[in-house]
């Protein structure tokens, strides 16, 4: 099927098999390998991207479902070498270790802050329920998001 999408500000047109997931399309067709696949079943959130401004799990969306959509992936968050304030905050507060869940965490964090510019710790933890991290114990991820929210609001 023919799809037309805008990803990280760039327009793409592809003829794509209907069974291909959005995550596979991003990784295999567009070489946007920052979107990771950790579970294939919406459980871990490593594949989180933004579809028309809202966080979505790319492993359980078909590429054909996002025809006509505008998307942002982790590769679209930084402005060249200048990192997004959320990325800066994760670095500053050690919100990552092995880095595999990190793209999904950053994308979900952006969604949390977008919907709630001043999230409490509890609200952040609730917002992260769909994103698994096996390394950090979440403590510094929550801290990073709190600091990122402060910075974005400042």
């Amino acid at each position: 099927m023919q799809i037309s999408v805008k990803i990280n500000g760039k327009r793409y047109e592809h003829d794509i098999e209907p069974r291909i997931s959005l995550a596979q399309y991003l990784r295999e067709t567009l070489n946007l390998t920052g979107t990771h696949i950790g579970c294939d079943t919406s459980g871990c959130g490593a594949c989180t991207v933004h579809v028309d401004g809202a966080a979505a799990k790319a492993c359980t969306l078909l590429a054909v479902q996002v025809d006509g959509c505008e998307m942002t992936t982790i590769e679209g968050m930084a402005n060249g070498n200048e990192m997004h304030p959320i990325q800066e905050a994760f670095k500053e507060h050690h919100g990552l270790q092995c880095g595999f869940c990190t793209p999904g965490m950053v994308m979900t964090a952006a969604d949390i802050i977008k919907n709630n510019p001043n999230p409490s710790e509890e609200e952040i933890r609730h917002g992260l329920e769909g994103n698994f991290c096996r390394c950090t114990g979440y403590h510094n991820i929550v801290k990073s998001i709190q600091h990122a929210a402060d910075k974005i609001n400042a």
Binding site: G34, I74, E75, A78, F90, K91, L96, G99, F100, T102
Partner: peptide
């Protein structure tokens, strides 16, 4: 962290 945060890790 720079590469991990930008989705540029090489797994």
């Amino acid at each position: 962290d720079n590469r991990f945060l930008k989705g540029a890790g090489k797994y």
